[in-house]
Design a binder for these strands. Structure first.
Lengths: 121, 121
DNA sequence: CTTTTATGTAACCTACTAGTTACATGATGA
DNA sequence: TCATCATGTAACTAGTAGGTTACATAAAAG
């Protein structure tokens, strides 16, 4: 239902703090216009519109023209999908393997936790 | 525990299909070396190393030198954190509001679902 | 010691991102 | 109609991402 290209777009969109903040604002004020949204940011209205394009590309925001204003709405579907994929594919499995690895992340030890494969090249 | 800058790094890292694939491979073959990993990709070993830098920057991969090889390990902690944040902050709230909005995403209607605020600027 | 192998660093190129200013369009209100 | 206001488009710039080739280092094997 969600291919890799779509996932790229969603992660890409979420990778910038300002865009996450836009999502929060649109979520809190559904139907907000472009200009009103832009007023909350330091950058120009055009910059905000470009961010909006990225978010619409990722389908995280949908909009509809209403007179001379464009109303913005948040769409949680893509996040739900990634959330679901993480829950099923990633988190469940990975969480089980975390304890074996996490000490490495916290303070790089010298002893390898596992010597398995490593051939192949 | 995870600030916005860290989140940027994780989303940025996950935004590219090749890096997600690297994560999958390292997850399946813990302790794999850089060269062995690079052999699974079309691009050069140096390109793969740069991707690895991004993943280590995001703390999604940790590594340790072992002789002349560097062993790579997957670290699920950042994903767990985002997963938790989504579960608590985002998904729970957003999921409740999805039904009101989703028809807009599926087939742009002409009627606004909500006329609320929209003032502010 | 010399050669090979695994990894790392440097310098460079191209494409894309994120921002800008200036101008265009199109609906509203007087 | 005409001025105004909200939004959209065009063209440009600076910086970063993602890729390359060439060279450097350091451990293992002979």
């Amino acid at each position: 239902m969600m291919n890799d290209r779509d996932m790229d777009a969603v992660f890409q969109a979420l990778a910038h703090e300002s865009r996450r903040r836009m999502l929060d604002i649109v979520k809190d004020e559904p139907g907000i216009g472009v200009g009103a949204l832009a007023a909350d940011f330091d950058v120009s209205r055009i910059a905000v519109m470009k961010h909006l394009s990225v978010l619409e590309e990722a389908n995280l925001i949908v909009s509809e023209k209403h007179g001379r204003t464009r109303k913005l709405y948040f769409n949680a579907a893509p996040i739900q999908m990634i959330h679901d994929r993480w829950t099923s594919d990633y988190s469940a499995y990975w969480a089980g393997h975390m304890t074996r690895i996490k000490y490495l992340a916290e303070a790089r030890h010298e002893t390898a936790p596992d010597e398995k494969k490593q051939g192949k090249s």
